[in-house]
Amino acid sequence: MKSKKTFRGLSGFDLKCLAMILMVLDHIHYFFDFTGRIPLLFSQLGRLSGWLFLFCTVEGFAHASNRRRYVLRCYGIAAGMGLIQYAIQFFGWTRADGFFPANNIFATFLPCFLLWQRLDELKKKRWLIGIGLLTLP
């Protein structure tokens, strides 16, 4: 008798790969929309990647053995992306129409880390630290 396999869902790695594929579609539309040949569906599907990356970030933060190192690693990536964006503007590496990329999802997630840590401190009934983190942003 054949055993029936059950679907257990997608792993974190699977979700990240799916999010990267969708992100590439979004970026193709973002960078080449001016040609008029890239379907809007690329962008619509690509916008799902942000939610998938947010979910993976929440999971990573919740299960990190060292949250400080996790946040610093994400901060380093955000800073690197910011430096690249600054270099593009500073050196004038823009298209003839003045377009330049302004994407940095890691910088968007950085305030979320404060919120999640604040909620965790309040859950542990560490009121002073939790309220202190509330005032930081």
Rank of each mutant, 00 (worst) to 15 (best):
W51T: 02
T35G: 09
M23A: 05
L48V: 10
D33C: 06
F55C: 06
E59K: 09
F42H: 06
L45G: 04
M20Q: 11
I38V: 11
K16N: 03
Q44S: 13
C17M: 15
F61W: 12
F55L: 07
V24T: 14
W51R: 00
F55W: 11
P39C: 14
F34T: 09
H29T: 15
L40M: 13
S49K: 01
L45S: 04
D26R: 05
D33P: 06
F34L: 09
C17S: 13
T57M: 02
L25C: 07
K16M: 04
I38T: 11
E59R: 13
L41V: 09
L41T: 12
F55Q: 05
F32A: 14
P39A: 15
F61K: 11
L41S: 06
F53Y: 07
F42G: 12
P39Y: 13
G60L: 00
R37Y: 13
I21G: 03
L22V: 03
G36R: 15
L40P: 15
S49V: 00
Q44C: 10
L15Y: 05
L54H: 00
W51F: 02
K16A: 02
F31R: 07
Y30K: 06
G60P: 01
I38W: 03
I21L: 03
D26N: 05
F61M: 11
L22G: 01
M20L: 12
F42N: 12
H27M: 02
L45E: 08
C17A: 08
D26C: 05
W51P: 04
T35L: 06
L45M: 04
R47G: 10
L22K: 00
T35W: 07
V24K: 11
S49E: 00
S43C: 12
F55A: 05
F55M: 04
L25N: 04
C56M: 01
C17L: 10
L15F: 03
L54F: 00
T57P: 01
G50W: 12
T35R: 05
L45K: 00
L18I: 04
G46Q: 03
M20P: 10
L25R: 06
F42D: 08
L22I: 02
H29S: 11
S49G: 03
V24A: 07
D14T: 05
F53L: 11
Q44M: 08
H29D: 15
K16R: 02
E59A: 11
T57Q: 01
L52I: 06
V24H: 10
D14R: 04
A62S: 12
F53I: 10
L54N: 00
S43V: 15
G36S: 15
L48C: 14
C56H: 01
Q44W: 12
H27V: 03
Y30P: 08
I38P: 11
C56L: 02
F34W: 14
L25T: 06
E59M: 14
K16T: 03
F34H: 09
M23E: 05
P39G: 15
